[in-house]
Structures are given as C-alpha cells and as structure tokens.
Computed example of a mutant assay.
Amino acid sequence: MGERLEPSQWYASLPSFLSSASALITDPSGGSVLAVKPNYRDHWNVPGGIMEAGEPPHLCCAREVAEELGFELSLGRLLVVDWVPPTELRKAWFGFLFDGGVMDDPSRISLQSEELEEFAFVARTDLRSRLTANTADRVEAALLARKSGGVAYLFNGAVVQHASPKVPRPT
C-alpha cells in the first residue's frame, strides 16, 4: 500500500484547469449576437473573461461584463458548458456561457478601452467570420439552448450527445 498523502498535498497533486465565463447578449430580434473586439487578438469574442481564483462562473461573467461593457447585467441561466482539451500553450479549459438577455439600447455600452477596440451585433450567419470556430460553436449551441430551455454540454465546441439510460425509480 502506497504512502498516504495529507489532504493539502493530495489536492496540490491534482490537475488544474483554466475557466472562462461569458454572456450571450442578443438584439431585440434575437438574430444578432453582441460581440467585442479585443485589442490583443485578431478575432472577436462574446463579452466575458477568465475566472479569478475561487471565483464562481456566474460572478465572473457579471464582473467581466461590467468591466468590459460598463453596466451591470442581470444574468440569466447557464446555457453552455464547453470542455476544451489542453494544447502545447495552455491547460484544458472550461468555458461557461450564460444568458445575458436582450439589449435594446446599445448606447448603454461604455467599452473598456484598455482591452477592447469595438463592439458590434453580429448576425448569426456571420458568426464564423468574426469568432473562432470554437466560440461560434458555443454561441450557436447557446442560442439553441436558450430557445429549448436546455443546457448544452460541448466537448471542444461539439455538442456531446448522451443516451439517457432509463434508471428505475425507487418505489
């Protein structure tokens, strides 16, 4: 039998992950998604960002939206969880996407100039030309989840389909 580790040592030996939390915000028609253009990347993204140590996803999302767009968001339910495998550059990634509702007055946006260049409402048909493929997959899954009332679980941008086994209920 191996040496037993103290809880702090055992927890320190476990793998760690990166996580982000973002908001799906649409125009009143629901056909266009609010996207922001970071000044440190070529591609666009949806409002949100990296979770701080110990920060829950929903609070991260609200904080990041307030920082990036300059207003407090009444955050809705979780729409998507996406697990993205590690690369040579980074650890594995959990991406959470929450329902940020509908924005009928874009003049409320006060863009954070330290990180963002501009914002735009992007038509669903143009998502793939502005966002990375993985982010576009996540946004498309979120739009469907918003409509269906469900939550999408993605693996690297692809919806994971699970057969629901029939589990007998206790009588």
Rank of each mutant, 00 (worst) to 15 (best):
E118W: 06
S16N: 06
P106W: 06
S148G: 12
A62Q: 12
R146N: 07
S148M: 13
A123I: 00
P57G: 09
L144N: 09
E6F: 11
N45M: 14
R77N: 14
S74P: 07
G48W: 01
R138N: 08
H162L: 15
A12G: 08
A120R: 15
D126I: 00
R63K: 06
L111S: 10
G157H: 13
H162Y: 09
R4A: 10
I109Q: 09
T171M: 09
G30E: 05
L111T: 03
T135Y: 05
T132H: 03
S16A: 14
S19V: 01
A142H: 04
P57D: 03
R124I: 00
A92H: 09
L97V: 12
S164A: 13
D104A: 15
S110I: 02
G54H: 05
L69T: 13
E140D: 12
K166Y: 07
P28S: 06
K37N: 02
E3C: 09
H43D: 11
L59D: 07
V80A: 13
T135G: 03
T125W: 00
A62C: 05
R90D: 07
E55Q: 12
P168I: 06
P47E: 03
T171H: 11
N39C: 08
L144D: 14
R146F: 02
R4M: 13
S8Y: 06
D137L: 02
